[in-house]
Design a protein around this nucleic acid. Structure first.
Length: 566
RNA sequence: GGGACCGUAGUUCAACUGGUUAGAGCACCGCCCUGUCACGGCGGAAGUUGCGGGUUCGAAUCCCGUCGGUCCCGCCA
């Protein structure tokens, strides 16, 4: 039907006869000559309709509208020197049309414009209703290709490493994991329901017991929870599980996979090994388990300095077992006004959203002088002031923002403000491209987290992850006593503040698995009802195995990988 | 489940404190234009201001209800 792609043609094609198909991106009608930008998947080229080539041709060209589907026959020719368009890959040449055939005209109004030149925002709802038009747009088209390339590269890589792709069931039984299940009524077993899998977690463990050794799957997962802008109820993860591996081996393998993907999609060589940080370090320094390390503004704990301060917001927080931490905004005095950090200001609101009661601040002036609210200034001694400036390394012109209260709230608040300011101050990206690709392993996650509402421990990762052996043998006490404080043999991979995925060593000892169930408050009856099949399997020769998964971004955004769930 | 914000032409937005006939860009239609490339010029058509009710001399604007959407909290091992 066609001889070339629009975007492929170059000077070397001059004088050749071509047949092109595509969509009209834009028309410029000069009365005596009409220029048509013709677009297909490969790019755009200018078609010139000249009345000398026939009256009929010109009449058809006059009727063309944006997005009309056409087939064009013509000859490639060079453009006049003064008309060369350097912005276009095909800008040296054009097609002199001798036949234009309309394959499908446009009837009525288009809901939005498709052309790459149009950058007007369009409501999400409209874009979804007319997804086909949206996909025609360059950016969306590229996103789908990016996603394809990512998965294609992963498949090739895993194939070479001896993995096989296995599909696990979609219509399955409900296993109580974290989220609500999507349910599907069963016609055959009236009154019974299938659940859609929240992840292939248990299936892949059973595959390991089944001697598969190296499995992967591009797996669809379903979780019936409320949405967020970066969360979807249905998402895809690259799911991997392998037997007989040490942690170092699996981290190295993951790094190789990531390196291969970034090489393929960005042409970038990511250096290995990736840096590592323990969960505790990350929480202390960044207030989150997925820190964005492209910029500094680390959290500093100043509890020791201010614990006896007359300023009760600070000293009171510490007396109640909380802490006072702060971040230092370089040159914040000139970039951030008081209006923004006082009640009603946007930065203050961010702090409130995170649960903070307020947002204390100190502005550092010349010669170690400070500006702040009266209550802090009056109660701060000279040596305390000096200690603060020493810990924060704040210089004249810098702004120090404080969080005080329960440590988890303080962390959450400062993490949020840190990210908010990084965006505002443009510390993290130039245009749409990140300033760096900072991959980071977070290791040594705690096994459990205390849920104060339900008054019980919860698995931080999931209840199948193995605790670190040395944590269990501390002080030669029993496993039951050491378990709640143990660290998991689990890791997360973080990129620029986004959690790309993570993994862990599975428990393969049925007794230990039972202990973990007990620790999270699952009675042995419940455990055997819900996970009996798993403990059965562990009794019949389960190998030690590591599993992990990466989120494959639903939105194929600038980075393609996005946090969906943790 | 809770909170904040939004809904005006096909579309993106505007319309002061409630005050004349609800405006503009793009798209659309017509006319003009032979080197533009987000072409340009002149003209035109296009609106139940999401829907229903209320307050008022007067409502896009204020109030109540309702529908739809965006974001956030809870939730998402």
């Amino acid at each position: 039907m066609r001889s070339n792609g629009c975007g492929e043609l170059r000077n070397k094609d001059i004088s050749s006869k071509v047949e092109l198909c595509g969509w009209v991106d834009r028309c410029r009608d000069h009365g005596g000559v009409i220029f048509v930008d013709l677009r297909d998947q490969s790019g755009t080229i200018q078609i010139t309709a000249d009345p000398d080539q026939g009256k009929k041709l010109f009449e058809i060209a006059e009727t063309l509208r944006n997005e009309t589907v056409v087939k064009i026959k013509g000859v490639v020719r060079s453009r006049p020197k003064e008309s060369i368009n350097k912005k276009l890959g095909t800008g040296d040449i054009e097609i002199l049309a001798d036949e234009i055939k309309i394959l499908n005209p446009i009837r009525g109004n288009l809901p939005f414009t498709v052309s790459v030149h149009d950058e007007e925002p369009v409501k999400e709802e409209l874009r979804l209703r007319h997804r086909y038009l949206d996909l025609r747009r360059e950016r969306m088209n590229q996103n789908l290709r990016l996603r394809h390339k990512t998965i294609h590269t992963a498949r090739n890589f895993l194939e070479k490493e001896g993995f096989i792709e296995v599909e696990t069931p979609i219509l399955t039984r409900s296993t109580p994991e974290g989220a609500r299940d999507y349910l599907v009524p069963s016609r055959v077993c009236g009154g019974e329901w299938f659940a859609l899998p929240q992840s292939p977690q248990l299936f892949k463990q059973l595959l390991m017991v089944g001697g598969i050794e190296r499995y992967y799957q591009v797996a669809r997962c379903f979780r019936d929870e409320d949405l967020r802008s970066d969360r979807q109820p249905e998402f895809t993860q690259l799911d991997i599980e392998m037997s007989f591996m040490e942690q170092e081996e699996i981290l190295a393998l993951n790094e190789k996979l990531i390196v291969a993907i970034w090489k393929a999609i960005k042409g970038i060589d990511i250096p290995t090994p990736f840096p590592r940080m323990t969960w505790e370090e990350s929480m202390n320094m960044y207030g989150t388990d997925r820190p964005d390390t492209r910029f500094d503004m680390k959290l500093e704990d100043v509890s020791e300095v201010v614990k006896n301060l007359g300023f009760k917001v600070f000293s009171g927080a510490i007396a109640k077992g909380g802490s006072v931490k702060c971040i230092t905004v370089k040159n914040g005095n000139s970039t951030i006004s008081n209006v923004r950090i006082k009640p009603g200001g946007d930065i203050f609101k961010e702090a409130q959203e995170a649960g903070a009661g307020g947002l204390a601040f100190i502005r550092v002036r010349e010669k170690g002088e400070i500006d702040t609210i009266g209550a802090i200034k009056e109660s701060l001694s000279n040596s305390q002031k000096e200690d603060l400036l020493k810990i924060t390394k704040a210089k004249a012109g810098d702004l120090i923002l404080f969080g005080a209260g329960e440590t988890s709230t303080v962390n959450k608040t400062l993490d949020r403000i840190r990210q908010f300011l990084a965006n505002e101050l443009k510390l993290i990206s130039d245009k749409n491209e990140p300033k760096a690709w900072n991959f980071l392993w977070i290791v040594d996650f705690p096994m459990f987290e205390f849920n104060s509402e339900e008054n019980r421990l919860e698995a931080l990762h999931h209840p199948f992850c193995a605790p670190k052996a040395e944590d269990l043998t501390k002080n030669s006490e029993s496993i039951e006593i050491n378990l709640p404080k143990a660290h998991a043999q689990a890791y997360d991979l973080v990129l620029n503040g986004l959690e790309l995925g993570g993994g862990s060593l599975r428990i393969h000892d049925p007794d230990l698995q039972k202990q973990v169930f007990t620790a999270i408050g699952l009675s042995s009856k419940e455990a055997s009802e819900q996970f009996g099949f798993l403990t059965d399997a562990l009794n019949m020769g389960a190998p030690p195995s590591w599993g992990n998964r990466f989120w494959v971004g639903q939105n194929c955004n600038a980075i393609n990988w996005r946090r969906i769930y943790s």
